[in-house]
Design a protein around this nucleic acid. Structure first.
Lengths: 238, 238
DNA sequence: CGTAACCTTGATTAAGATCAATTCTCGTGG
DNA sequence: CCACGAGAATTGATCTTAATCAAGGTTACG
């Protein structure tokens, strides 16, 4: 694993080469295929993870067997850090279990496992890292708040529209150097998973897609979404 | 404001007397009555707040005028810290506005206003404080995740039951020294606000209360909730 | 090819939102 | 101390959305 790759990870982006060497010494790179479990909500908490490539879903199973996706994690973002900071002592002495399940949802997903103890030691001696972590948490809180708002006061079609718009903007941002002027969004998750993430079920999601399609706003072809009228799409979100 | 009062605030609980003196020099105590605005979502961001007494609701107004309560903040908890850590530079130079509205919802609410710049300076030189802040964020994330889960996969009655149980347990914990064996929960927010917080409307909340009451689980008398069958209440939450 | 996972469609049902009208509660001033 | 009025809470009737149940259709992959 190269320095550059590690520095792409927001959290680690301002560490010195020495610090990165130390990080390299305690982290572990793991590879998964689509459908592979990264951890279950019954396993002892060993530390958090950073996605290096691919995509991971964090989800819970309710009493009656329904699945609810809490979080979708993509490249260079981290997951399962919360327990570590709720109580570092307990996390280190493995008194916790993971608070949810984590599964790779695309092939060749690579994640970095960051064990609790050495990371806490590093962060306690490094304010910059601490502030980065705070920034990460702040962004997650902002995102979650928006998510709650969407779920409580928007209907499913509006939620779908918001998701598409957000993803589209994100994709644009990432590939800006290529200036691909295509208006296509590639869904890298299954529609089942998307439904769960948006707080609904596949049937309803399918009907919502159909409705937005009939209004000439998008066109759905499998996992590709063509954005036909971005102005209308933005209107629908509001 | 006494040292002891400040040390009750989780965030500040491990600061030295010197550090607390510094904190005292830049914070500002403000008093509000029920219904008073603490800030609007249009005002420039000046810093975050800690509730010293009373209760504050954080809420947004959607396009069509509906109110959605994001967060209820009680004694010794903080609010509006997110913007400060999303981007400290921008927060300090007042490029942000508050991300939501904040209103006092009980009389004689007292809050401490913590200006961005001096606080960031303090936290950057104090890892303990940084870690406390991280713990606070971690707890909020956990809480929000649970909230999303409740809203997406529980019906309103179950959400109400969960809220009552959580509040009841909290109240018990706080007044444990008194060992008041009463099974009464006092609601310190209006039912309108509670409905909004639970992602529903007053009418539906009222009917849910009635249903749980008919099952002999609770008895609602104005703002007092008598818990008649805690076992059944716990069952209902699951 | 064949099979399993994924997705879509249709019919029905249930939960909760909306609309409309009372009733309750409590602070204020006569 | 009572009457008034405003805001809060409840109740009822109706309507809308989305979940459920059931059946096909598509796609991907061995």
């Amino acid at each position: 694993m190269q320095y550059q790759e590690l520095r792409n990870i927001f959290l680690l982006s301002e560490l010195s080469s020495e610090e990165l060497d130390s990080v390299k010494s305690f982290v572990k790179l793991k590879k998964f295929n689509k459908g592979d479990m990264i951890f279950f909500d019954t396993e002892p908490y060993l530390g958090f993870y950073v996605v290096i490539d691919g995509m991971v879903k964090i989800y819970k199973i309710s009493r009656d067997g329904r699945e609810h996706i809490i979080h979708l994690v993509d490249k260079y973002n981290s997951f399962a850090e919360v327990p570590l900071f709720e109580n570092a002592e307990k996390a280190i002495s493995k008194e916790f279990v993971y608070p949810a399940n984590a599964m790779a949802i695309v092939d060749d997903t690579q994640v970095l496992q960051i064990p609790s103890k050495p990371f806490i030691e590093l962060i306690e001696s490094n304010t910059k890292l601490c502030m980065k972590m705070l920034t990460g948490f702040a962004k997650r809180l902002r995102h979650l708040n928006m998510h709650v708002e969407n779920i409580t006061l928007k209907d499913v079609s509006k939620r779908v529209a918001s998701f598409i718009l957000t993803e589209y903007v994100n994709q644009k941002k990432k590939s800006s150097s290529f200036q691909n002027k295509n208006e296509i969004l590639y869904l890298n998750i299954s529609k089942n998973d998307l439904a769960s993430y948006l707080g609904t079920i596949p049937e309803t999601l399918s009907r919502s897609f159909k409705k937005i399609q009939e209004d000439e706003i998008i066109e759905v072809k499998g996992k590709n979404i063509y954005i036909k009228n971005i102005r209308k799409l933005k209107e629908l979100c509001a």
